[in-house]
Design a binder for these strands. Structure first.
Lengths: 150, 150
DNA sequence: CTTATTCCTACCTCGGTGGTAGGATTTGTC
DNA sequence: GACAAATCCTACCACCGAGGTAGGAATAAG
């Protein structure tokens, strides 16, 4: 599994806030209630989003969280990357410049690199707004005959 | 991580056999030696490939393993699917017909379905032969301007 | 009958996932 | 000023899959 509950819940939180904010702050309790998820666990995930600058928060009564930008300005890749740490499908393609010692002679490496690229390409093209609007054509790719058969 | 060492080593084993078989059987010890991997661990992985019908085996002296088909007739998806069990990037898209209970109202599900499709599409188009031949254009996709910018 | 090999079963360690618990701090409202 | 509603912070924990290891039984070639 490439994306754990952390990343999935992060995305759920972002869409929930986008939908229910209306300019104001949305409380953690409300999100947990609506999404039927553990408030305590969501809290730890939201903290990541907040520290990462994807959300803005207000403490105290009537406080909560709101998006730092317009939904269309978030791509899914950055949300998942922040919460998951990496989106690489395999260990041997780790980003931080550290390469597998066998990389030079590894014949399967191009495959993993290609897979990584395909994933990153897909996720970076889709925005939070696409999810809110239920843009199925963009997400499921039915519109692209070429890519379907390729 | 979507693909563990099990799947990666499985692919490494398949390419090693394809390269070194020459019609005959390749022994586990030789593969482990060439690839610098634990023979005991490889053994458990090769057992899956063998039971799954991707390899043929011969016991006893001068025994070993060989491919059941031509390299060009294996696509990477089936090799990884057999060893990993699933290639789904998230838990909530599990294949066996069992769906998440929130599926009907989940706005992020199409995203995961689309991601799953993109991955499956990529891996099913590449063959073992492509890896052996180092077909970088196909694996890294540089030839497709359209898909690059899409 | 010896040797090289696959086949089978059982076991082990470690780190990450998926949480839970409790309290400290901040802010709006009366 | 008190209270309530909210975020923020630190610590803890159980479970399970990843990534192996170990030892021996069965089989086939020479």
């Amino acid at each position: 599994m490439m994306v754990s509950t952390k990343g999935r819940y992060a995305l759920t939180v972002m869409t929930d806030i986008a939908r229910n904010s209306d300019g104001g702050y949305v409380s953690l309790a409300d999100i947990a209630e609506r999404q039927k998820l553990s408030m305590k666990y969501l809290e730890s995930i939201i903290a990541i989003l907040n520290k990462g600058g994807l959300l803005e928060s207000l403490r105290g009564k009537n406080g909560g969280y709101k998006l730092a930008r317009d939904p269309g300005d978030y791509n899914i890749s950055e949300i998942l990357l922040l919460t998951e740490g990496t989106l690489a499908p395999v260990n041997c393609i780790m980003q931080d410049g550290v390469q597998c010692e066998k990389a030079a002679t590894c014949s399967t490496l191009p495959l993993w690199a290609g897979l990584d690229k395909v994933i990153e390409n897909y996720l970076s093209k889709i925005t939070l707004e696409d999810i809110i609007n239920g843009n199925r054509r963009k997400m499921l790719g039915d519109y692209c005959d070429h890519c379907d058969t390729l």
